[in-house]
Structures are given as C-alpha cells and as structure tokens.
Design a protein around this nucleic acid. Structure first.
Length: 150
DNA sequence: CGTGTTTGACCAGCGC
DNA sequence: GCGCTGGTCAAACACG
C-alpha cells in the first residue's frame, strides 16, 4: 500500500531526528551485510566494528494488538529468537526476504502488557511491496502509533 | 517443491 | 583474561 509506505517513512524520519544522511547509512548497510557468504561475513566484515560513529536508524512502533505478527505488506523471514531480561517473553528477529533488501525488524512483547507489542524496524525498504494487503488497511486502522524514536 | 519456522550453537563486544 | 550477553547463522523440520 503506497499510503502506508509514505506514512511509515514519514514517521520514521520524524522519529529519528538525526536521520539526515540516510543514503550513506543505507549504502553502508547494503555494502556491509550484502555479503551472504558465511566465511566472508565472519572473517572479513566486522559489521559492529564499522559502525563506530554511525548509528543505524531504528524505528520503534508500539502497538496494541493480540497478535504480534503485524503484516506491513513485506515478506519477513524469522532468523532468530532470544529471551530478554526484564521480559519473560522472547524477542523475535525478522528480516526482509527481498533480494538485496537487508531491512530487519524485531518484535518484542511487554511483560506488563501482554497486549503491547513493540516492533522495531531497522533500515529502509527500497522496493515495492509484494503482499497485496487490502485487509492491512483494516489492521492499520486498528493499531495506534505511540512512539517512533529509539 | 519452494518457502518460512524452529532451535542450538557460534561470535563479537563489553564489563569486571 | 574470562565470562556473560545480545545478535546471528544454518541445518533440520513443517507446511502449502
């Protein structure tokens, strides 16, 4: 849904005030994580070491929903799940399955509010949405965005 | 058969 | 230097 995409971007920009060199960040992200070779990634690339001064933009959404799987129109593949302290619920790590799209997102529930779900997006999509979500509008109208900064 | 999920192990960073 | 912790990978499995 184009509307949602524009909305998402706007919110992200608003939430991450320091997000000005978006292109640079994107390029670095793509260049760094693009190498899917395991050995290459481990041996050559030091993703965390490279981000010395640069912060990766992360956009956090807090939503009230019974289901933590909020489909925003993109296809996500789960690549990890870890338990966090101060939170008895595990955190799920998702990644966009589009080729060349390294956008990540993690979903975490709040212990206090089981109905509260924090969705943190990392990176920006540079490709059209694959999923035809006409029912997503319905979901959107149901969820409320509280904060966009992290 | 293609795609996504599960799950334990692995690695790098950080604190002590 | 050692151990903990968060984040990621990848083989096996499940599902249409």
């Amino acid at each position: 849904m184009e509307n949602f995409q524009g909305f998402l971007t706007t919110s992200s920009l608003l939430g991450y005030g320091e997000f000005q060199s978006g292109k640079g960040l994107m390029e670095e992200m793509e260049g760094g994580a693009e190498n899917k070779t395991f050995a290459g990634l481990l041996g050559t690339e030091k993703k965390k070491g490279d981000r010395k001064k640069i912060r990766k933009p992360r956009y956090a959404f807090q939503t009230r929903s019974k289901v933590d799987i909020l489909d925003d129109g993109y296809r996500w593949r789960k690549y990890g799940q870890k338990a966090v302290k101060n939170n008895k619920f595990p955190r799920s790590y998702y990644r966009c399955t589009h080729q060349g799209c390294n956008v990540k997102k993690q979903i975490q529930r709040l212990t206090i509010d089981e109905g509260m779900v924090v969705t943190t997006y990392e990176g920006m999509h540079s490709h059209p949405i694959q999923n035809s979500n006409d029912n997503f509008e319905h979901i959107l109208s149901q969820m409320q965005i509280y904060t966009t900064s992290f």
